[in-house]
Lab assay of single mutants.
Amino acid sequence: MEVRTIKVFTTVDNINLHTQVVDMSMTYGQQFGPTYLDGADVTKIKPHNSHEGKTFYVLPNDDTLRVEAFEYYHTTDPSFLGRYMSALNHTKKWKYPQVNGLTSIKWADNNCYLATALLTLQQIELKFNPPALQDAYYRARAGEAANFCALILAYCNKTVGELGDVRETMSYLFQHANLDSCKRVLNVVCKTCGQQQTTLKGVEAVMYMGTLSYEQFKKGVQIPCTCGKQATKYLVQQESPFVMMSAPPAQYELKHGTFTCASEYTGNYQCGHYKHITSKETLYCIDGALLTKSSEYKGPITDVFYKENSYTTTIK
């Protein structure tokens, strides 16, 4: 009895394709271990004539594949690729409408935090270190965002349907971005203890939790000093293409032309909904596939993004 075979390709990165001759009487799992086709788990399936010449994702289970996976995804987590594939199996079914010149995501599976993050990423200057993220990001900007969303979920250790947080998501993504040249110098002034300067680099240099107003941050924000008295913390120097200011959701007025974009969060910790506000020729609110415009805006804002380049204080 002759062994019926077909020729397929296996890959971990969709760049390096490895030619395989597979036995049609055995499952993919018996031949390769966990195997995925377009995100779908085909591990328990036997090869079919229609699979001839198709590319299958496999887990990096030998040295060659491990090197290829690390170079593309910059992670050695053995569960990463499987999590990416199972997320992709959902995100490829989502709709990605162009809204006001940006790629958004039609609401499904509690994905409003991903839509808000995706919209924000198209408006701030950011370059990702893992080629996987950078490639998928370019495709997302062009309207094909399924891979990018699935990668975000995998890097953030999230599953489809789980509630997510924009600030946490951005923080994970910033860790995989090139923020080497970003720098922030802060000064804390206390009447009792004097003053202390701190220099922050990388992710810490672009994120701040405690106030939404970048102007206020430049002037000074009140913080408790270690001595128990009130101290003032203010920005001395900022070198970065953008800054992200966050605070627990509270009524906040966004003035046209003073910011790049913002995240609105309605609801409580267990259950809520994100919308995205962007400042173009007027203010726009993007909620999944829905767009509304207004000249002014007041609502429960939790993150505001500002364009920056270089700032030095005039406070002496």
Rank of each mutant, 00 (worst) to 15 (best):
I152P: 00
T35W: 05
T282H: 12
Q196A: 11
Y155Q: 05
C225F: 00
N157M: 06
Y84F: 10
Q31P: 06
Y72A: 12
V188S: 07
N157A: 05
Y28I: 06
K293I: 09
H176M: 09
C261G: 00
S86R: 14
I124C: 04
K201W: 15
T211R: 05
L163A: 14
K191P: 15
E308C: 09
Y155E: 03
Y274L: 01
Y208N: 08
N100H: 13
A145W: 07
F32G: 06
Q270I: 08
N89T: 12
Q237V: 11
A154R: 02
F305V: 11
F259D: 00
T313W: 11
Q251A: 10
L200P: 02
A154N: 05
A262I: 00
L254Q: 00
N111I: 02
V185P: 02
G39A: 15
T35D: 06
P130Y: 00
N49W: 08
Q20A: 14
I105V: 07
Q251D: 12
A150H: 04
N14F: 07
V8P: 06
V185F: 01
Y57P: 04
K218M: 04
L235M: 03
C112I: 04
H74P: 05
T313D: 14
E204G: 10
K275H: 00
C227M: 00
V99Y: 12
P78I: 08
Y214G: 01
G101P: 04
F259A: 00
D23A: 11
P60N: 07
Y28F: 15
N61T: 14
Y234C: 06
Q270L: 10
P130L: 04
E168C: 07
Q31M: 13
G210L: 00
V58H: 06
N268S: 13
Y208H: 12
P34E: 15
V206S: 02
N147A: 10
F148S: 02
L212C: 08
R4C: 14
K106W: 04
W107K: 04
T103E: 02
Q270V: 09
Q216T: 08
V58A: 07
K54G: 12
A146T: 04
A154G: 04
Q237H: 15
V185G: 01
Q197R: 11
L179P: 04
N129W: 07
L290V: 15
L153G: 03
F305C: 01
Q195P: 10
I277Q: 06
N89R: 14
M207W: 06
I15H: 15
H256M: 12
T312E: 11
E281L: 01
